[in-house]
Nucleic acid binder design. Structure first.
Length: 981
DNA sequence: GAGTTTGAAACT
DNA sequence: CAGTTTCAAACTC
């Protein structure tokens, strides 16, 4: 039974051949479309998103597959030829191993490595691990590579080429070292250069085809001689340049490491001490081990220690600052699916690199970029992602800062060995060894070229210990071809592995696990699979094929799925393009998170987007216009139309009630029931004019505390129709999740809404003291004076003054510069909005009367309720029915969007593309369709309304009450009279 | 822990 | 493309 059969097992209806054929077709299509993909916003997004910077073409090499025809944008690295097979890697895995063996012999003169240990530390790769080894107490820097990296595979006599490669390998690092001083600045200033340097010390570069390497690299090699002599000692000295330095940086005293440093190592270390800056640069590039004390990794070569103070972060998932040597390894050796790690920090033992810019492909698919729901791990404080790494998922810290997750350098994330938040998680030595072996396995996979496949497959084909408990050395005899058999055996030998259902979908490291029973973890039902990860050992899945051992099967399954939906494996959570300087400022201040939204949006009907059934909610992002949810109450951001409910606060209600003389319902009561999850302070504004202008953009303000515990009020980010996104864990750290506002940002035309909302929050909270009602009511925090103690007067507010209260506000004030002050007079009003849909029509047709500036229907924003939301309709209707034109209560204009904003375009295009890098990620075509059709009612109609509203601005629009009765308008076209027409 | 609910994915 | 089925997670008891 081959992989196809496996797949077909799940889809019996399909012929055995079909999958393969389909796959091929898909691949071809994907490739042919790749060019297009690259031009697509999605591609741009991904490219920008990926922490990996495109490598210069020259570096990629002409022979690079897929160079001319990149793979599908979101195609999983697993299936991404580019990821799998950087062409400039000319050496097969076997060759690598040969190289390793040779080096090993040169260095240690013997191959007495423990098979079991081989995989531990140096599993990362023969070339790259050197620098990391140095931190390992158990092995000398120079030997470590040999002992742990080299698989004791029966090797042929080194060929001439091998010897040459070996020599190069030795030379390169040296060259690097000699170059360190001269190029330190360049390293810092030029990422590319940095990358090259990174590669070199890792010796992986030695295996690279010189012709394919960058000129910078060549320059470096040209300067290698000074160190060459040392190298003659047979020491893998180059490996120390990075690591040693790093170690020096970290430990200051190599003696602490108890490492048998060779002259070169010491020298490197010395240099490190003297060149802190340079060290710093290198440090970032080096695998590092945590201080011995207390860190399991110290005793376990297979685990990397946190780096550079980042290690001990609270990240739920540690990451590995595996940037240097491994990177090279990745480039040179990685050729298979385990490339999920691209762009992400890699755990030690991985031969993959997360080094940005290290990859030969322009934009790796951020499969684990942390945007997949599974990767996000329910908005853990630190967003975690797993990387499929040889049999185990490694959580990857995306960075506490959403920005880091989305675009930051991997190093910006927190670290810990093996990507585990708590090294203790990996306390079990066997487990670690297993991982190391997996790494080796990954390594073999990585080099799985037709030529090398056989050899590589013989290296290690271990199945997770949790499944087979295969001794470390047993994996050698298996091959991919045996997948099916292994699977069958697996099922037989460890029958329906009655593993307890994963209690939590998140294993200890904060990453999800699955419990698949029927899909063999080869369908998107499986979170692990969907996120491009292998199932973790902690998964309770049955008959799981989503294992490194079944790489082919997995790949094929992925192909099949991608055939249906090329973006099936795209990150589910898409960060929203952010062009707003406000956002940047805020972001920099750590006050607000990056915005993100669900790729496709949810379709919740019953959960109100308040439960984890909702993918948006689960991901900690607000719903967007792309969602087709009903009665959305997503606490992270309501989708357009529904969020307005949040703006209807008690104060306004009372105010309106006083005016109307009737009780105003609270929209089905859900507002009351919003409960603790209510983060938003519904702040109706006394700032009527502006509010009216911003109409539906009114947003609640999230109240939270900053790091200092000082409550802060987060202004809204200028984001296009996207919810603010925070990688907080509402499950683990609910409070943190509230630190940042998850403002749901309306489309660009509503940029000013941010201002409005914020202002409202300030104003209303202060104006009558009821502004905090919602908060108090819901048990959430009370607005901090900082936000609300401004001397706002409900009737007269200088928005500018208010906005200038903080830099952030200044930015908002800037918005006024663009859009004009929130002056009522400047706001479009008094026109009849085009009907939205359904029940909203009556509302939309209601007349807006500017009336007096003093009264703007603050709470009436709710009338912008989503037409697709029953609740909205109901609520609006009920509310509306209580409106009494006699009291000058009018429906706010449907199109009160400032002209400037109106020009922003449609929601679907609601992305300001001022910068090429700011391109909004476009949903898949079908998604677009969804946006335009299914959500349609809301989005589409809403947009129609907006667009049509402008031309429909009649000087005198009929006054229509909710019941449809018309009233005359006064002579000035202002207020509606009480007399029916 | 079993059963139910929910919504995404898969299928028709 | 809509409707239905399947699936697994989330949730409830």
């Amino acid at each position: 039974m081959d992989s196809s059969a496996v797949l077909n097992n799940k889809t019996p209806s399909k012929s055995t051949v079909a999958p393969t054929t389909t796959t091929s077709t898909t691949t071809a299509i994907s490739i042919s479309d790749s060019a297009k993909s690259q031009e697509s916003p999605v591609y741009s997004y991904i490219s920008n998103l990926s922490p990996l910077k495109p490598v210069k073409a020259a570096e990629i090499g002409s022979g690079y597959l897929g160079l001319n025809s990149p793979p599908p944008v979101f195609k999983s690295p697993d299936t991404n030829p580019q990821l799998k097979r950087p062409l400039y890697t000319q050496l097969s895995t076997a060759e690598f191993y040969h190289q390793d063996n040779k080096i090993k012999k040169l260095v240690s003169g013997s191959d007495n490595s423990n098979p079991l240990e081989e995989g531990l530390v140096c599993a990362v790769g023969p070339d790259s691990l050197n620098d990391c080894d140095s931190k390992n107490e158990r092995c000398s820097p120079s030997i470590c590579t040999d002992e742990y990296l080299v698989e004791p595979v029966a090797t042929e006599s080194p060929s001439t080429a091998d010897l040459a490669s070996l020599q190069q390998a030795k030379d390169v690092p040296q060259a690097l070292q000699s170059n360190m001083e001269n190029s330190a600045k360049n390293l810092v200033e030029h990422k590319d250069m940095e990358n090259h340097l990174d590669i070199k010390p890792c010796a992986a570069s030695t295996l690279l085809d010189q012709a394919e390497e960058s000129s910078s690299y060549e320059k470096l090699t040209a300067q290698e001689k000074p160190i060459e002599e040392v190298d003659k000692d047979g020491v893998c000295d180059w490996s120390h340049h990075g690591c040693t330095n790093a170690i020096s940086e970290e430990h200051k005293d190599s003696s602490d490491l108890n490492l048998p440093l060779n002259p070169v190592t010491k020298e490197s270390k010395f240099e490190a001490n003297q060149e802190s800056q340079h060290q710093r640069v290198m440090l970032r590039r080096c695998l590092q081990y945590e201080d011995d004390g207390g860190n399991p990794s110290a005793n376990n070569p297979g685990i990397l220690a946190p780096i550079d103070g980042i290690a001990n972060s609270n990240s739920c998932c540690g990451t590995l600052n595996l940037e240097s040597s491994n990177s090279s390894r990745l480039e040179s050796n990685a050729t298979s699916g385990n490339m999920d790690v691209v762009g992400l920090p890699l755990p030690m033992g991985s031969n993959l690199s997360a080094q940005r810019g290290m990859l030969p492909f322009p934009a790796s698919r951020p499969s684990s970029i942390g945007l997949h729901l599974n990767s996000i791990v329910s908005s853990a404080p630190v967003c975690c992602a797993r990387m499929r790494l040889a049999g185990r998922d490694y959580p990857i810290v995306q960075g506490r800062n959403p920005g880091s997750l989305l675009s930051s350098h991997p190093l910006e994330g927190t670290k810990s060995s093996f990507g585990f938040a708590d090294p203790a998680e990996f306390s079990n030595i066997n487990d670690m060894r297993l991982n190391s072996q997996f790494s080796l396995r990954a390594r073999s996979d990585a080099a799985e070229t037709p030529q090398s496949f056989k050899a590589s497959s013989e290296l290690l084909l271990l199945t997770p210990t949790s499944y087979h408990a295969i001794p470390s050395g047993m994996g050698k005899l298996q091959s991919h071809v045996d997948h099916t058999d292994k699977f069958e055996n697996f099922n037989q030998q460890s029958p329906p592995r009655k593993k307890k259902r994963a209690v939590s979908t998140s294993d200890g490291d904060g990453c999800k696990t699955c419990n698949c029973k029927k899909t063999k973890c080869l369908k998107l039902y499986c979170d692990c699979f969907a996120s491009g990860n292998y199932c973790a050992e902690s998964c309770a899945c049955q008959g799981c094929f989503n294992r490194p051992d079944y790489e082919d099967t997995v790949q094929e399954a992925r192909h099949q799925i991608e055939t249906r939906n090329p973006l099936a494996f795209a990150p589910k959570i898409i960060p929203c393009a952010n062009e707003s300087p406000v956002h940047n400022v805020v972001e920099e201040k750590g006050l607000t998170p990056s915005s993100a939204r669900h790729k496709r949006g949810c379709n919740c009907k019953k959960s109100m987007c308040l439960k984890k059934y909702c993918e948006c909610f689960q991901a900690g992002v607000g719903c967007s216009d792309g969602c087709r949810c009903e009665r959305c109450k997503n606490t992270y951001g309501l989708k357009e139309g529904q969020k307005s409910f949040f703006n209807y606060d008690q104060k306004n209600r009372r105010e309106l009630e006083s005016k109307v003389g009737k009780q105003i319902p609270e929209y089905g009561g859900w507002l009351k029931d919003y409960g603790s999850s209510m983060e938003r302070v519904s702040q109706s504004a006394n700032f009527k004019g502006w509010e009216t202008a911003s109409n539906e953009k009114l947003e609640a303000v999230t109240v939270g505390k900053d790091i200092q515990g000082k409550k802060i009020c987060h202004p809204h980010i200028l984001m296009p129709a996207t919810p603010s996104f925070q990688f907080s864990d509402h499950a683990k750290d609910a409070f943190k999740s509230r630190l940042y506002s998850r403002r749901y940002f309306p489309s660009p035309e509503s940029d000013v809404t941010i201002l409005s909302s914020h202002m409202k929050s300030q104003i209303s909270a202060d104006s009558d003291g009821n502004g905090t009602n919602m908060l108090q009511k819901t048990g959430t925090e009370v607005l901090h004076p900082v936000c609300y103690n401004e001397e706002f007067d409900s009737g007269s507010i200088d928005s500018r003054t208010q906005l200038s209260l903080s830099p952030i506000y200044d930015k908002h004030a800037d918005a006024f510069d663009h859009f004009g002050p929130p002056n009522v007079q400047s706001m479009p009003s008094g026109f009849t909005a085009s009907p939205i849909t359904g029940d909203s029509k009556s509302i939309s047709q209601a007349v807006i009367s500017p009336g007096t500036d003093d009264f703007r229907p603050r709470g009436l924003l709710l009338w912008r309720g989503s037409p697709i939301t029953p609740l909205t309709d109901v609520g609006v209707t009920k509310f509306h029915e209580r409106l009494d034109p006699k009291n000058d209560v009018y429906v706010m204009p449907k199109d009160d969007t400032p002209k400037m904003l109106k020009q922003a375009g449609t929601p679907l295009k609601a992305v300001k593309v001022s910068s090429p890098k700011r391109k909004r990620v476009s949903p898949p075509d079908n998604h677009f369709r969804e946006f335009e059709s299914s959500s349609s009612s809301g989005l589409k109609s809403g947009r129609k309304y907006i667009l049509q509203g402008i031309p429909s601005l009649p000087p005198l629009t009929p006054c229509i009450d909710p019941k449809g009765d018309r009233y005359k308008r006064d002579s000035q076209g202002g207020s509606c009279s009480e007399k029916p027409e």
